[in-house]
Amino acid sequence: MTPDFTPTSDGIVVVDKPGGLTSHTVVARIRKLAGTRKVGHAGTLDPMATGVLIVGINRATRLLGHLQLADKSYDATIRLGSTTTTDDAEGEVLATAPPDRVAGVTAEAIAAAVDGFRGEISQVPSKVSAIKVDGRRAYDRVRAGEEVELKARTVTISRYDVLDVRPDADGISVDVSVDCSSGTYIRALARDLGAELGVGGHLTALRRTRVGSFGLSVAHSLESLATSFDWLPIADVAGGTFPRYDADDAQAAAIRTGRPLPGLDLAAGQTAMFAPDGTFLALYEPHGPVAKPTAVFVG
C-alpha cells in the first residue's frame, strides 16, 4: 500500500499531460498539489502533445537522470499534402502540394517510405525545438524572426508502424505508432515523410504512450491527481528499476556518507542500496573489487 504523501515525501508522479499545457505548467500544478517547490520533469512534451510525462518530487528529481528513460513510444497523426512553419498543425502553412500529386500517393508508397526511416537515422530537429543555439532556445529565435539552422543528429527508430491511411479532398491523414530513442522529434518524422513522398507533411496529433518502463496504465490526469495524489515512492521506483542490495547497519552507515564499500559483488551498472529498514539510500556501481556511489539520496 502506497503511504500518504506529504510535502517532504520523495517520489515520482506519472502524469497524463493534457493538450494545450506546457510541461512547465504541469510541473507548476504538481508543485501546488505536492506542497513543495522541489519538482522537475523528464522529457519535455510540446503543448499540442498529450500523454506520459514523468515528474520527480524532492530527492526523486535527482533520480530522474539515472532512470532508463531514453526509449519512448508515441501515437501520432501525420498530415500529408502541406508543410508548416513549425512542422505541426500549430504553425502557418508554408506550401501545399497540388491535389493530383497528393491523390497519387498510395498506401503502398507511404509504407515503402516509412521503411526508410526505421533503424538508426540522421534527423534534423524541428526549428521550433527546445534545442539551445548560442544560449537561446531555437523556438525563441524562430519566433523572433531569426533564421535557425540546426545540425542533424543520429536517432534510432526501433518501430514505425502505419496504423491507418485516410485520404480526403485536401490531403492524407496517416496514423502511426513509433518507438524511438531519446532526442527523436516526431514532428521531424512527419516533415521528412512528406518530403520523401514529394507532397510535404506535418504533425496534427501526438500522444506519448510510454517513457522507459512507465506507460499510460500508470499515468494520471491532473484532475484525478487533485482528488487523489497517486505517486510512486522513490524506494519503490529505485527497487523496481535497478538491482537491489540490502545493506546491514554498518554498510548502511557507510553508504549514507558515500564511502566506498570493498568486497561487494555487485552487478555491472548501478545497484539500488537499501538500509535494513527499507530506506532507499543510494546508487552504487562496481569499480573492480570496490563498490562506489554514483548518487547518494540521504543525508
Rank of each mutant, 00 (worst) to 15 (best):
T36H: 12
P167I: 02
V14G: 06
H41K: 04
V102P: 01
K127C: 14
T22L: 07
D168V: 12
A70Q: 14
A112V: 07
L232M: 10
L203H: 02
V199Q: 03
T294A: 13
S224K: 02
V165S: 05
V13T: 09
R137M: 08
V14D: 09
R143L: 05
G104L: 13
G263I: 11
K132V: 01
A272E: 05
P276M: 06
T83Y: 05
V298D: 00
A252R: 00
R37Y: 15
T241Y: 05
A109E: 15
V27L: 11
G215T: 13
K127G: 15
E92W: 05
S213K: 02
L33I: 03
R79N: 08
P167H: 12
V290W: 04
T36W: 15
D16C: 09
K132D: 10
T8K: 12
T156W: 15
K151I: 02
I57N: 11
G288W: 13
I172M: 09
A238G: 09
V237A: 03
F214W: 13
T83D: 12
L67D: 06
I234F: 14
V290T: 13
R208W: 11
L232N: 05
R141V: 06
D248G: 01
P243I: 08
L94K: 01
V298I: 08
S181D: 15
V26H: 06
A238F: 11
L45T: 03
R143W: 07
G104K: 06
S228A: 12
R166Y: 08
S23W: 09
V237G: 04
D140E: 11
E90C: 05
H66K: 10
V14S: 08
A111W: 12
G40M: 11
T22S: 12
P293I: 00
G278T: 07
L53A: 05
G43S: 10
F117T: 00
A195S: 09
A195Q: 07
D16L: 11
A250K: 08
H41G: 02
F242G: 00
F242C: 01
S181G: 07
T25V: 08
A107Y: 14
V93H: 05
K127F: 11
L225W: 12
S126A: 14
K292F: 13
F280R: 05
G299N: 14
D71R: 03
A291I: 10
T6P: 09
R143Q: 05
E285W: 15
D170V: 14
D246R: 10
L206E: 15
G288I: 10
W231V: 07
D140C: 01
V296C: 02
R166K: 07
A76N: 11
D161H: 06
R259M: 03
V176P: 10
D88K: 03
T241V: 07
A111C: 08
L21S: 06
P99W: 06
A152K: 01
V142Y: 07
P3F: 12
G81W: 04
R153N: 12
S73Q: 13
P286L: 10
E147S: 10
Q251S: 11
T22Y: 04
L150H: 05
G11Y: 04
R141S: 05
D134I: 01
T154Y: 13
V27S: 14
D71E: 15
A268E: 14
L225S: 03
K17Q: 07
M273I: 06
S82H: 04
E108H: 10
V148C: 14
S23T: 01
D10I: 00
E285C: 05
E92C: 01
